[in-house]
Amino acid sequence: MKIRLRFSKFGTMKYIGHLDMLRYFQKAFRRAKVPMKYSEGFNPHPIMSFASPLGVGVTSEGEYMDIETKVDVDLDAMISDLNKEMVEGTNVLSAKVLDDHTKKAMAAVSCAKYVVFLKKNSQVLSEVDLEKATREFYDNQNEIVVLKKTKKGEKEVDIKPYIFMFEGTRFQNASFLKDLCVDIKDEEFCCNDDDPVFLLQVSTGSNDNIKPELVMKAFYEYLQLEEEAVIAIHRVELYQGEKNQFESLGV
């Protein structure tokens, strides 16, 4: 049976790298006695793949993983068994059965939504009208050119086609925060009412992967303000499909 899981990663687990997460889940599946399907050969490994690697330091409530089991399983029981084997900071949120024709999450993913918080007591944007500034930065510019690191060095790239949404506001006005599963009040980036917060949707996947940090850098450059060192990034959701028709990878 092919299954897609959605899970969250928060708190101290945000320091666990992608490959370590893979190993962590492999072991959790065994502890929870999920009847995983294994590859052939002398070093069989369970058939599983993450939709999109999450950078170290980034929290998320929109992580997806496709797995395959040897026999059919009851999804609710599997979720509950798995969550008993998880440490604080990872939670399996939901699961759905995939039909044989469904594209793997890793191949299908095309877009990610992020919330970006600034570090506590940040002053640089305190005088800026964020709604207006983000509109001008995103809607009024025809192109957003940044220096992007490549294998050969750096080159200028227009990232505007890969940004699908960019909004900034103050914490108290950020209605989108109400829908988050992870209790952001617990996180280190916990904000005051008038601290800035941003909502982004950017291209994600094997081609044209845009990190939210890069968009923020361009934003600061546009405002001619000094970039702030520490921001906290929270991934909200992953999508598949084309621009204007994005749909959630999950359930």
Binding site: I16, V56, A232
Partner: peptide
């Protein structure tokens, strides 16, 4: 939620910060 002894800033600036967070299974 568990609090870590090192700040986020320090943990993000060192290699393999997961060495210092504890909370492992078992």
């Amino acid at each position: 939620m568990r609090k870590l002894f090192l700040s986020d800033e320090i943990l993000m600036s060192v290699e393999k910060s997961a060495r210092y967070i504890g909370n492992e299974v078992n």
